[in-house]
Amino acid sequence: MNDEQRRRELRDFLRTRRARLSPEEMGFPVGRRRTPGLRREEVAQLASVSTTWYSWLEQGQDIRVSAQVLESLVRALKLTAEERNHLFMLALGQSPPDLTEQRESISPVHQRVLDHFEAGPAYITGRRWDILAWNQVASLLFGDFSVLLQRERNFVWFFFTNEAHRHMLVDWEDHAQFVLSKFRSTCSRYLGDERLIELIEDLQRVSPEFRDWWSRHDVFGRPFGRKEYEHSLVGRLVFEYTAFLVAEATDLRFVVYTPLPESDTLEKLQQLKELHIKVIFTKTSSE
């Protein structure tokens, strides 16, 4: 198959995959549509790419395509494993990488962004919800992730097994059920991942709540919300949180907690920082 034939096959494949998706099920208004399925701009929105770029790709134009962007299209178009392989062969001329074996890492740029965000806790998680990086405020509120074992630095494990966090978070049960349902929707993308299977089995063993709720098969979620914490030193902390996918590595989620404007959370976080500095200074002076 020459390049022109390959691009033509890619064009037709993308069009047919787009046409089979229901706008309503994908969260778009139905309205009056001349053709079935999603519009190009809707697919582009779901894949976090520009409409122009996606249009060029679907038109069969000779443009550069990365594996990361193709993975975004796989999720946006709800492709099966076989369709994912077919997409990679048409777009890149090679099979896709094994998702479960890719080593996850963050760049120094990501860490610098975290370090410069001081308004609230922020961290980055991977495909299995492992906590890969975090800022100082996250350590102040949740504890020092660097001293935890690798398993303990998984956000779902932390959420269901860390007693200090459980008692500090207001309405823990509601938040835990939401986390679990969001986690299940992620797991469906990596069926057969041995490390995920092991994590789920261990959580069912150590957490009665996880075991009971996992059997419900709830799948829902939104990338934003509100959390309140009752901290033993400074009292009630109120945050809005949201999650962003990292553009060049869409298995990474950038989670940011922002103090609610009408609360005094920002001032209380500053108190926590000052208390932390005093503890370090006292410890250093005594050594």
Rank of each mutant, 00 (worst) to 15 (best):
R226K: 14
K78N: 14
R39Q: 03
S207R: 01
E118D: 08
P259M: 00
L14Q: 03
D193G: 10
M26T: 09
L149M: 11
L252N: 05
A249S: 12
F183E: 03
L38T: 03
T80C: 07
F178L: 06
Q136L: 12
L92E: 02
R253S: 15
S107D: 13
S50V: 01
D251Q: 13
R128K: 14
W214C: 08
L180V: 01
G120D: 02
W157Y: 08
M168K: 02
R153N: 04
P261F: 06
L252S: 05
Q61N: 14
W213P: 01
H167R: 14
F239N: 00
E274T: 03
F244H: 08
V238E: 10
F155I: 02
Q270S: 15
G60H: 06
V179E: 11
H276C: 11
V137D: 00
S286H: 12
L132F: 04
F239C: 00
E198Q: 15
E24T: 15
R153C: 08
F183S: 01
F117I: 03
R226Y: 13
Y257I: 02
P96D: 11
W213A: 10
L252M: 10
R84V: 01
Q5D: 15
V279H: 11
T100C: 10
T125Y: 02
L180Q: 05
S146N: 08
F178Y: 12
Q136R: 11
D62A: 10
V147T: 13
W157T: 06
F117E: 00
T125W: 01
L10W: 00
P108D: 12
E41V: 05
L87A: 08
H175T: 07
Q271M: 10
V170H: 10
D144K: 04
Q94F: 10
A138Q: 03
R216I: 10
V279F: 12
G120T: 01
F254D: 11
D62M: 00
K227E: 15
G225P: 04
I277L: 13
R211P: 07
K273I: 05
L275D: 14
G143H: 06
L92K: 04
S50R: 02
Q102K: 11
K182F: 07
L73M: 09
H165S: 13
R75E: 10
E71G: 02
F142G: 00
